[in-house]
Amino acid sequence: DRHTIHIGDITIHLEGFSEEELKLAEELIKRGIHLEEVKRILEELYR
């Protein structure tokens, strides 16, 4: 499954994450956390 996060003019595609995980990812990215770090956090929390 493919999910999309929109932040301003930026569109990020993250596959294989639930709606809850994507909301967390979006919040972290909006707070300035680097995408690679966001992915690592999600994997630690949900895998």
Rank of each mutant, 00 (worst) to 15 (best):
D1P: 01
R2T: 14
E15P: 13
I29V: 09
I7P: 05
I33H: 07
I7N: 07
E19H: 12
I7D: 08
L42F: 03
H13Y: 12
R2Q: 14
H6D: 12
I12W: 08
E19L: 13
H34S: 12
L28N: 00
L42R: 00
T4K: 01
L35M: 11
Y46S: 04
E15Y: 15
R31N: 14
I33V: 12
I5R: 00
L42I: 15
E37A: 06
T4R: 00
I29A: 03
F17Q: 02
L45D: 02
H34F: 11
E26K: 10
D9W: 13
L22D: 01
R2C: 11
V38C: 01
F17D: 03
D1Q: 01
I41H: 02
E26R: 11
T4N: 10
E27T: 11
E15H: 12
E21L: 14
G32W: 14
E21F: 15
I7R: 03
K23W: 12
L22H: 09
E19Q: 13
K23T: 09
I7L: 10
D1V: 01
K39W: 15
E36H: 07
I5T: 04
E26I: 14
L45P: 00
L24S: 05
L42K: 00
E43A: 04
E21Q: 06
I10T: 13
R47I: 15
R40W: 08
E27S: 10
D9K: 03
I33P: 02
E15S: 12
D9L: 13
Y46W: 08
Y46F: 15
F17Y: 14
Y46V: 09
I12L: 12
E21T: 10
L24W: 09
I7K: 05
E36L: 08
G8E: 08
L28Q: 01
K39G: 04
I29W: 03
A25R: 01
L24G: 01
K30W: 10
L42D: 00
D1R: 01
I33N: 03
T4H: 08
K23Y: 07
I10V: 13
H3Q: 02
E20D: 11
T11D: 07
D1A: 00
E27A: 10
L24C: 04
E26P: 01
I29N: 01
H6F: 06
K30P: 00
H34V: 10
I12T: 04
H3T: 09
L22K: 11
F17H: 04
I29F: 10
F17E: 03
L14A: 04
E20Q: 11
R40N: 05
E26N: 07
L22S: 05
F17K: 02
G16K: 05
E43G: 02
E19V: 12
G32F: 15
E27Y: 13
E20P: 06
I12S: 07
F17G: 08
I7E: 07
Y46A: 10
E27F: 09
H6W: 09
H3P: 13
I33G: 02
H34N: 12
I33C: 06
R31W: 15
I12N: 05
R2I: 13
E15I: 15
E37P: 00
L35R: 02
K23E: 09
H6E: 11
E26M: 11
T4Q: 14
V38K: 00
L42A: 00
E44P: 00
E15F: 15
H6K: 10
L45I: 15
E43P: 00
R31A: 14
E44N: 02
I7C: 02
L35D: 03
V38F: 04
E27I: 11
S18Y: 05
I10L: 13
D9Y: 10
G8P: 05
L28Y: 05
F17C: 08
E21C: 07
E19I: 12
L24N: 03
R47F: 15
K39Y: 14
G16Y: 08
E44K: 02
D1N: 08
I41G: 01
L42Y: 00
E27P: 01
K23D: 05
L35V: 08
L14R: 01
E43C: 07
G8M: 09
E26D: 08
E27Q: 09
Y46R: 15
D9F: 10
R2M: 15
H34Y: 05
R2E: 13
H13P: 04
L28I: 02
K39P: 01
I33Q: 03
E19F: 13
I29L: 14
H13R: 09
L14S: 03
L24I: 12
I5P: 04
L42E: 00
E26L: 11
G8C: 11
L22F: 10
Y46M: 10
I7H: 09
V38E: 00
R40K: 11
E43T: 03
R47C: 15
G16R: 07
E37M: 08
R31E: 10
H6Q: 14
G8N: 11
D9V: 12
R2V: 15
Y46I: 15
H34L: 13
R31D: 08
E20A: 09
A25G: 05
I33T: 09
E15N: 11
E36V: 06
A25M: 11
K39S: 03
F17W: 11
